[in-house]
Design a protein around this nucleic acid. Sequence first.
DNA 1: TGCGGTACTTACCTTTTCGTGAGGAGGGCG
DNA 2: CGCCCTCCTCACGAAAAGGTAAGTACCGCA
Lengths: 121, 121
Amino acid sequence: MAKAPRSGPYICGIDAALDVVSGKWKGLVLWELHAHGVRRFAELRRALPGVSEKMLTQHLREMEADGLVHREVYAEVPPKVEYSLTDAGASLNEALRPLGDWGRERLQRQGLEVRPVAERP
Amino acid sequence: MAKAPRSGPYICGIDAALDVVSGKWKGLVLWELHAHGVRRFAELRRALPGVSEKMLTQHLREMEADGLVHREVYAEVPPKVEYSLTDAGASLNEALRPLGDWGRERLQRQGLEVRPVAERP
DNA sequence: TGCGGTACTTACCTTTTCGTGAGGAGGGCG
DNA sequence: CGCCCTCCTCACGAAAAGGTAAGTACCGCA
């Protein structure tokens, strides 16, 4: 069960965009892929503290189905899979940047901690 | 139970911002309030096709707690409650605009229908 | 031989979210 | 006297999302 294709029609663009990024880790995956360009499964897993393998694969598959990430499988042993952003994923990340700025400002205003995962762009 | 204040720390700004807009109707509420400035409960309800009263009040309360919307209660009979965006809510909407554009482009690219709720800004 | 690393899948369970339907207080309307 | 209007609140469940743990298949390393 990948994901129900959404019952009704979208009401506006925000609606459609949020549908694609909502998910506990999707924003972070986008972020990480944007910061590093290409990442392997285990690298992403290490980058997202607390994510389970199941959730990560599930989110990656959904994002692949949504055309946000590209999945390159190398038929090797041991297996090797590389994930990267598609053009749509990259443009989504661009569109997401003001939102990220807003969120960071908000965190500062509230004196909340931010746990940096890796160097940020 | 308003909402659990989020267990762990946020990892980046996108994380924090998404936490505040994720919810089936929050994006639409923001949109509607941005388009009209001030709306009453029943007006919002009519504007969001399919929303239940419970969900609408719940989302409005959460957004109020998050400092996104202002809630003005008039001690009248019949009751009258007006909702409007706070400065934080307005700036969030600004930050959300590129995302909305992205979503609309995406919808066009996929030939999906968009059901307009009201005149858009 | 046994363990760790690769990238998953599967089954099962808990938590969160969403929806449905009821009720309620104080009026106006017929 | 009911019934509808306002804006909610509460109780009950279904559905979705997320978490846990195990299994798969192959290899390198000690």
